[in-house]
Design a protein around this nucleic acid. Structure first.
Lengths: 336, 336
DNA sequence: CTTGACACCTGAAACGTTTCGGTTTATAAT
DNA sequence: ATTATAAACCGAAACGTTTCAGGTGTCAAG
């Protein structure tokens, strides 16, 4: 029913080898034969069986991406944009993209193992790196091609793209301080996440450099969802000595925080300053629009994908470690 | 370097056949041998080469999903949640998920062709159906297993899950009418999208059933993004005879519309009612929270995935066509 | 007339599984 | 003592490619 090389070979009266060579444009096939084979292949509706190609070539032409999802209501504009970047870049290079969703934990490690040792993919993209990231340790140990979005504290050398989040957060906090804020609260993210650590560091550094006291009770840890930003900001705002500004570790939590402030009758950007980080699309359309730090998410998706494909093809990377410079996006939620 | 059945066979002193049978738990292998083989396989770190399995079994154990993305800033909470549902269900059933991102158009058709005829996947999930959907026509014609999220106007019988959007939209509009609104604007979506058509129909029916005149100038067509909701609502609100309520075809546009209203100093839910559709997570955390129609997106993801796997396995579906009942979620943006 | 070079083509092996159709051995039934 | 049955195992083919190592036949150079 499905047409194979053998069928074409029979149709054109040549060997399977010749047909294969013709289709792969090898130069020991005459031009006429190539033309004939190609025409017949098209007419018969031939498409190569990729399982066979893969088995033979020991390559899958597939990239893997394991998305860290938390619970069923997974909704992260950040990842949809990243996915678009990765998806477009990989398909532009003829690679398939295998996506799997896994919450961090043993199942996630297992997923990496399965994908790597089953040789399901030629390389992996790892996103949202952690301080002590078992995925990276595993991939380095296996010597399996991968590119990360984010760094790690482990002492491995691997290709990555990251944004300088310490600097990014310092930019926002400095902005708030310049606006006169002294009591600034920080809604952090779990400290095992590398970017969360950097952003918290940026916060601490900015406060210190400006000689401001650091009230540890103003640092709360959320889980990066809007819901959690909402809850934690509510808690902060209900205190007798509420902060005058809240800097969130990511936009989603900042958006949740804005709601909490508004529920308490506060004018965001006036009665209270709220800032985010990432510059996801909704940040621009919130009310008021969110002051944040821009990350070129789509472009990062393309970059890591492109780097990975180069690694797989054995090409040298011009830059193995890319640290993007952040830029502050001043909108109205931060006041000023 | 990588360990194959042959290596295990050599190690345990049995044939490749026996090893394979043991690992597949066939019943013509003794229990001792099975145990031995399994232990050795584990010790040697064996994982089957899936390309070989696929070639042999003529199955890929992979599901395909081609996401309709529009432009680089693709950020749709709807799809991330759907993806989580699909991803979790497929991996729970031992299926891989091949994701590709494509804007509708010739490239998209090509992507479907490639995936189907290269037998890269055992079945496809098609989302966001269109009135005249070439993807569905193609898949039906090819007799390729697929399940759709959404219906179509074409006369094909295929398995789908959908929500009754006509009814859903009638529910919201009736709610607005009950609240006393008469001039209700509608921000629609491109009419080739099936769900957009249904929702518009729901709007028209509700107006008609309540004997309200239908001002065609109050129906604007957006592209489902927050940006577009923002722009169109702005346009509506700047008219001398502005509507008292705006019903958007989806939450994202409603969220954008809320911003537009707020920029003009209007209190959403009081000076103007705004409603959405889908109940994506941010709808709950907007300020004010969004009155909308709930769709169990995550669950729908699991359902279509589950149905597809049944189709692939040749099991009969208990229900080939599932039409979910919508439920109105009354929050504050709609007033009342 | 031989030799070498060249263009074009091909058989067979290999990739790692699964599965069909056996065989062998032990045991039970006649 | 023979035959049937069952348990445990195995060889070889097959899935559809790619590629290695040739093999023709033609033609020009020696």
């Amino acid at each position: 029913m499905t047409v194979t090389l053998k069928d074409i070979a029979r149709a054109v009266g040549k060997s399977v080898t010749t047909v294969s060579s013709a289709l792969n444009d090898y130069d020991d096939v005459s031009e006429e034969t190539k033309a004939l084979v190609r025409r017949v292949a098209r007419e018969m509706g031939y498409t190569p069986n990729i399982a066979a190609q893969r088995l033979r070539k020991q390559r899958t032409d597939t990239l893997g991406l394991i998305l860290p999802t938390f619970g069923p209501r997974f909704s992260d504009p950040f990842f949809s944009e990243l996915l678009a970047g990765i998806g477009n870049e990989s398909s532009a290079n003829g690679f398939d993209l295998l996506v799997s969703t896994q919450a961090p934990g043993p199942d996630e490690d297992e997923a990496y193992r399965r994908v790597v040792s089953g040789r399901r993919v030629d390389g992996l993209l790892v996103v949202r790196t952690r301080r002590n990231d078992p995925r990276i340790a595993f991939l380095v140990e296996q010597n399996f091609p991968f590119v990360a979005f984010g760094r790690t504290e482990q002492d491995f050398d691997f290709p990555y793209v990251d944004e300088d989040c310490v600097l990014g957060m310092k930019l926002v906090i400095q902005h708030l301080i310049d606006l006169g804020h002294r009591r600034i609260a920080f809604i952090a993210a779990p400290s095992d996440l590398m970017f969360a650590t950097y952003r918290l560091t940026g916060f601490r550094q900015a406060m210190e450099e400006n000689g401001l006291p650091l009230d540890e009770s103003l640092i709360l840890v959320g889980d990066m969802t809007q819901r959690s930003g909402h809850r934690l900001a509510g808690e902060l705002l209900d205190r007798p000595d509420r902060p005058t500004a809240i800097a969130a570790c990511n936009d989603l939590m900042a958006l949740g925080a804005m709601t909490a402030a508004q529920e308490r009758g506060l004018m965001v950007g006036q009665d209270i300053a709220i800032t985010g980080f990432d510059d996801i699309p909704p940040a621009q359309y919130s009310h008021p629009p969110l002051t944040t730090v821009h990350q070129p998410i789509y472009r990062i998706g393309r970059m890591i994908c492109d780097m990975l494909i180069k690694c797989i093809n054995g090409e040298a990377l011009v830059e193995r470690h890319i640290l993007l410079q952040p830029s502050l996006i001043i909108r109205r939620s931060g006041g000023g």
